[in-house]
Design a protein around this nucleic acid. Structure first.
Lengths: 108, 108
DNA sequence: GTGTTATATGATAATATTATCATATATTTG
DNA sequence: CAAATATATGATAATATTATCATATAACAC
């Protein structure tokens, strides 16, 4: 009972799911602090939470929430070393978004 | 009184502004219906509101809100012809986001 | 004009995201 | 063990986004 070609409805569902996944990823990163974190990690490779806080001039707790959420959603990964937790990009593709958006010329 | 090199603080501000702009654009499109609209328009070029509603199986009013918002934020443009309003991508770069995200392999 | 269709608008409700704060946990140092 | 440091957690408040509904507007057909 193999289906070789999808019906319009099936195709629609596939596309719908694809859009939901894409939106999910985009929502995860669509925040200035999160983008700054991504940008930072793409340059530095790995950073401890406190260093990120200092560079971004942003509260520890808030940064931690952002980091954990992005990790949960598969954008970051982390590694513990003593007192410190080092975060880095898990999904390196994501930095292309930033490059991609630089070329956009929307109203703000 | 020209400043040839920016101070760290200035650079920080510049990057902050850049991240805010990028987040603004990403937020504008980070929604399954909006992505579907963008995807559709990238294929069809131009479409009337009702046709978009039908294809996406989505309420007229909701679609209209999304379209107007995306237009306001510089992603779409529109053109009126009689009763119909045809929308199309203003910012074609934006479709690269979708391609970019297809390669990401995050948890969902 | 009346009726019909396409789109927009605006209020409100429902929901999700983000920030803040106080505190918990875990690790290291002495 | 007590103190200090780094990070996480969880509750809550503040804010933003999204959906829904009822209705307005505008253009066309008759």
């Amino acid at each position: 009972m193999e289906v070789l070609e999808n019906s319009p409805k099936e195709r629609f569902q596939v596309s719908k799911q694809k859009m939901e996944k894409a939106a999910y990823i985009l929502k995860t990163v669509a925040h200035p602090v999160r983008l700054a974190i991504i940008d930072l990690l793409s340059q530095e490779g790995q950073m401890g939470v406190n260093d990120i806080c200092k560079v971004l001039d942003c509260e520890q707790s808030l940064v931690s929430h952002h980091l954990i959420n992005m990790k949960l959603r598969g954008i970051l990964k982390s590694q513990k070393d003593g007192l410190n937790v080092y975060y880095e990009l898990k999904e390196k593709e994501i930095i292309k978004l930033l490059a991609c958006i630089e070329n956009c010329d929307c109203n703000m």
